[in-house]
């Protein structure tokens, strides 16, 4: 964003205006123009969309993520949900969210009792340092969640 300023006598009001727009420009470039970020609220509304108004309890999910990710383009991410994975009690789906990516959804995984283990690993993109949120839903209707912070050195979403 380049500001073109015509040369003319400047008064106090002009200076204020220029500084203001400069600060705005700085702010928007630092956030990559055109990208709107998600936040914790967006994650919460996404979760609501997927599972409704159920009560979430923390725990039973272990997120495997690096504390510091050097490259935000491929951050290895995995999770394990503590569940017997029988017909009577198994994890149906796990949703992964990133609370500051341009869009909060990362992926949803659907399991069946034939999965044996509610565990999966993949690689994701992260634009900056943020939290990864995992929400697991079982066939009995209970919902579990877990959160893990990941530091990102070089963001990876393309800009």
């Amino acid at each position: 964003m380049v500001q073109r300023i015509e040369m003319k006598p400047v008064n106090r009001r002009d200076i204020l205006r220029i500084c203001g727009s400069g600060a705005l420009a700085l702010l928007s470039t630092s956030m990559l123009p055109g990208l709107v970020y998600a936040d914790a609220k967006a994650v919460a509304s996404e979760i609501k969309k997927l599972i409704g108004d159920k009560k979430m309890t923390e725990g039973r999910i272990t997120i495997e993520a690096p504390q510091i990710a050097e490259n935000g383009n491929t951050v290895p991410i995995g999770f394990t949900v503590d569940s017997p994975m029988t017909d009577a009690d198994h994890v149906q789906s796990v949703h992964i969210f990133a609370d500051e990516n341009p869009s909060p959804e990362v992926a949803s995984f659907h399991f069946s009792p034939a999965s044996g283990k509610a565990q999966a690993n993949t690689r994701m993109r992260m634009i900056k340092t943020q939290n990864v949120v995992a929400v697991a839903q079982t066939n009995t209707g209970s919902v579990f969640m877990a959160k893990a912070p990941v530091k990102v050195t070089i963001g990876g979403c393309g800009g």
């Binding site: 990133a98 341009p102 869009s103 992926a107 995984f109 659907h110 399991f111 034939a114 999966a120 690689r123």
Partner: peptide
């Protein structure tokens, strides 16, 4: 699908890296 029955599936969003890697578990029947 394991012998015609879906055992695992996943929906991906743009936040999944290029050349997607995926690992998961299946119980042998």
């Amino acid at each position: 699908n394991y012998n015609g029955k879906e055992v695992f599936s996943s929906n991906w969003h743009p936040a999944i890296s290029a050349n997607p890697y995926m690992s998961f578990y299946v119980r042998a029947e």
